[in-house]
């Protein structure tokens, strides 16, 4: 798996994942109201009291860890946070998909709130992003050690 261990491949992954997370956070960061509604639309059981706290914190978590991934500090911490977020999104999207909810996923922008969107496609995208993030986590560490030993 030479490509995966390639330094530049991991840097490219960091730029892609970090960039996507920054882009995803931008439309939510000053629109807490609509993001809160987007989360509400998932109708997640027992989650009601946490909706607004999530709507306040998730966008800045995305922004901060995205920026850190790109500039290359706290790479492993950022990839852990991003992985947790992605796992959460995948669970929320899957439960909505299984229950056949007609929602906008609100994942990338708030533009399509209230409209149908392809939930399955979003789930697949999030799984791919999760794989990329796990690779970043795994090999950032390894590369650091290699660099130090040189």
């Amino acid at each position: 798996m030479k490509i995966i261990e390639n330094k530049y491949f991991i840097i490219a992954l960091r730029l892609i994942v970090g960039g996507l997370f920054i882009a995803a956070s931008v439309s939510k960061i000053f629109n807490q109201e609509e993001f809160s509604r987007a989360i509400y639309n998932y109708k997640i059981p027992y989650f009601d009291s946490l909706i607004n706290i999530s709507a306040i914190i998730i966008p800045s978590l995305e922004l901060v860890s995205g920026v850190f991934l790109i500039i290359g500090i706290f790479k492993r911490g950022s990839s852990v946070i991003i992985s947790i977020l992605l796992i959460m999104f995948i669970i929320f999207l899957s439960q909505a998909y299984i229950r056949g909810l007609d929602i906008s996923c609100g994942c990338f922008s708030l533009e399509s709130v209230g409209q149908k969107s392809d939930i399955l496609q979003r789930i697949i995208e999030d799984i791919l992003l999760l794989i990329a993030t796990v690779l970043i986590f795994k090999y950032s560490n390894k590369l650091n050690i290699q660099e130090k030993s040189i």
């Binding site: 960061i29 000053f30 629109n31 807490q32 109201e33 609509e34 809160s36 509400y40 009601d48 009291s49 909706i51 607004n52 706290i53 709507a55 306040i56 914190i57 998730i58 966008p59 800045s60 978590l61 922004l63 901060v64 860890s65 850190f68 706290f74 911490g77 950022s78 946070i81």
Partner: peptide, 24 residues
């Protein structure tokens, strides 16, 4: 990261024109 994000999140919510209360 959590600390920065929580502080930033609450700060942005405070200055945002579409801010929300803590509980929906």
């Amino acid at each position: 990261i959590l600390f920065i994000s929580i502080v930033l999140g609450f700060f942005l919510n405070f200055i945002s024109p579409k801010s929300i209360p803590l509980v929906r």
